[in-house]
Design a protein around this nucleic acid. Structure first.
Lengths: 190, 190
DNA sequence: CGCGGCATTCACAAATTTGTGAAGTTAAGG
DNA sequence: CCTTAACTTCACAAATTTGTGAATGCCGCG
């Protein structure tokens, strides 16, 4: 996989928000570019294991690790050392999965991709559409195999489970929001 | 692909229990081999979309669609028209994910692979180990990026969400069991 | 109104993954 | 103790997927 990753990494534009360095900009590149990179790698690996394609995983992880929660295509490309095409493709994928949203900086036409703090696990829970597909397939199966056959019954049961989970989701999320409030006060950024 | 596989196939033990159709029953082989196959295809497709490899998906779907909830390697190979090697590999994968369990028929050394009615969605919920890995990665990230940086905070929040979900799981599952009882009486098979 | 920069799309090349055939291993049955 | 039938492992071939380079389209700015 030739991952001898170049070292210098002048990725200082990684900073986006109040990064009052001021002090000797001498310290290691960017902020802990090293540490950031490592985290991105690791977390992306988890996502890959979970079934997400490689590039989308890396990009998502990078966004998650960025201070502003958003990066432009160029920044992503540079940080991850991938071509604009790769960024484009991966970002399209993530948009379709509702895992990132695209914004437009008023001035330039650099597009920003962002993870809303909440959005992403809500998306994770919100597999609504996906769920629906599964349920459709299962319903179909119940019908095909016969609702009274053992297999049909098993399928019906599985279907019921999906429906049950769907039912539970709203409550779970609202409990989460409460807990989140407890832990973090009101959320800092959107 | 060489499909010269013997078709003689005494796979009648596929049936397990009462076959009480009534309406126009299609005499063709097995039961509705046609319909079964179609369901297996479709459901497997969903699983693939969800990130599961192809063969494991097909095998899992086939097991789900079988009346007894269990099939032998040979049966799987024949029904899906794949080689024993493919069955072996896929089944190993599924075992590792705890999506099937292996049994041993006392007499012959044909191995049976089975989906417990519950087991599989419990496994789906029980991504314990997986969860732990994610949490570890996140914890690591919080530390690397600094617990007070915006990115670090976002990560901590995500971590909290995972922990929260883990907390909720037991309750959710037990509510499910109750509901399951309501809907299906006491579960038929284990 | 035209220029300059960005992002997207297309087609291809490379790399990873997938599934098969054949040999290897273990265990039942004569 | 040997034969036989299964499952597993190994190495390879094929097919799908992945990421890049180059060309195209867009939009804001001068």
């Amino acid at each position: 996989m030739a991952e001898d990753t170049a070292r210098t990494a002048e990725s200082e534009q990684l900073e986006g928000s109040g990064q009052l360095e001021g002090a000797e900009r001498q310290p290691p590149a960017g902020r802990d570019a090293e540490a950031v990179g490592q985290f991105v790698e690791r977390f992306a690996a988890r996502l890959v294991e979970a079934g997400l394609p490689r590039m989308p995983s890396r990009i998502f992880a990078a966004l998650l690790a960025s201070d502003s929660g958003s990066l432009t295509s160029a920044e992503l490309g540079e940080q991850l050392r991938i071509s604009p095409a790769a960024v484009s493709g991966a970002v399209r994928y993530l948009s379709q999965q509702h895992m990132v949203s695209r914004e437009r900086d008023p001035g330039s036409r650099r597009e920003r991709y962002r993870v809303h703090s909440d959005q992403w696990y809500e998306a994770l829970a919100n597999r609504d559409t996906v769920m629906k597909h599964w349920e459709a397939a299962l319903r179909d199966g119940v019908h095909s195999l016969g609702a009274t056959t053992p297999a049909g019954i098993r399928l019906a049961e599985t279907l019921a489970f999906f429906e049950f989970v769907e039912t539970e989701m709203p409550g779970l999320l609202s409990r989460w929001r409460i807990r989140r409030e407890e832990l973090f006060g009101e959320g800092p950024r959107g």
